[in-house]
Design a binder for these strands. Structure first.
Lengths: 192, 192
DNA sequence: TTGACTGCAAAGAGTTTGCACTCAT
DNA sequence: ATGAGTGCAAACTCTTTGCAGTCAA
């Protein structure tokens, strides 16, 4: 998922515009890897520049709000995470930075990711074994379904299950803080 | 499901006896995947011998059935796992072996656990970060609740949640094969 | 200017593997 | 006897940390 960026009558992008994309919908841009992919306007150049600046501003705001200095590694890592549809490991991110010619150390990647996690900018998952993977926290909680055959990962959200989990925790005298649910599935057998 | 086996007093716990055998009045053995071993008698020594042999026989069978040679490390590790109510890490098991005076290498512990997992004798969990933990596979499926404060692990089973998971998978055109659910909880705040 | 941030290398935790020896079958 | 199993140490993967230099505010 890239950044879903909504531009309407607003001139100065708001820090929290990412969270309430639905309000004041006028034109929707889907931005992948820092470059506008889709545009609904006549003035291309102007639009693109504006968009890029908006993104920068957004990311600055996000970082500042998190009490973090706006540095190149942080901006880049945030961009990579925002433009990725997959869950990325620290190593993945490090490689993307290297490929982009950035001289960022792997240690910084880990430190930045830890800070982002602390600031609720990203979510860390520990799927099975292997490295931890990170995804942007878009505020929409979801669980994961992994197809054992194709490896496809499907995100889903089910209110009923969430409710049940809370109920179970309470039954044992606890308060639900978080949970980790992964469904391993395979395609339905063909009917005959 | 295993068999719950209760004994009367026992006199003389041997070094290689299981940990929970030390209790004075009612000694409870939980033997998984095996022949029922049940004895309530006044002749402690005899009883104990009987039990020990039974356990040995059981474990031999389990190992053989799994296509594994019956070796001391494997028997010991199986015993430790069977007698533990907690989820143990490789390191935990290694320490218990060391404490019991066994000269088993940590590498062997890891290898044996991997083989046990392959043979469905144990289940491996990767809770959050930290080391993997293992528990005997008694065949009764359950999920886990981990207290973020005390670290306590509670096992639970909820038919409703299982049903919902199947339903969700089907909604997306898949068949549920397996799942992994961990609830992270904290104690209820005190009421006032 | 100053403390937060960074890259590097080294260390740390957890786990696996190569090798020569041992042991169950 | 023979191949599976073992202990040891070394390697390996993932992650964290100490330190001296750098940079945003």
């Amino acid at each position: 998922m890239g950044i879903l960026c909504t531009l309407g009558n607003e001139i100065n992008p708001q820090p929290d515009m990412r969270k309430n994309v639905k309000s004041s919908v006028n034109v929707v841009f889907f931005i992948s890897k820092g470059v506008p992919v889709k545009r609904v306007t006549s003035d291309n150049t102007l639009c693109k520049t504006y968009i890029e600046e908006s993104i920068m501003a957004l990311q600055d705001q996000e970082l500042k709000r998190a009490g973090l200095k706006v540095t190149l590694p942080r901006i880049k890592i945030l961009q990579i995470l925002e433009s990725s549809e997959l869950h990325l490991s620290a190593e993945d991110i490090y490689q993307q930075l290297r490929d982009a010619g950035e001289e960022v150390g792997i240690a910084t990647v880990y430190r930045v990711l830890a800070q982002f996690e602390g600031a609720s900018l990203v979510i860390r998952h520990n799927f099975d074994n292997g490295p931890a993977v990170y995804e942007i926290d878009r505020g929409d909680h979801h669980d994961h379904m992994v197809c054992a055959v194709t490896g496809k990962v499907i995100e889903f959200h089910d209110v009923e299950i969430e409710k049940l989990q809370r109920k179970i925790a309470e039954k044992y005298g606890y308060q639900l803080v978080d949970h980790n649910l992964v469904l391993y599935v395979k395609p339905m057998p063909a009917e005959n």
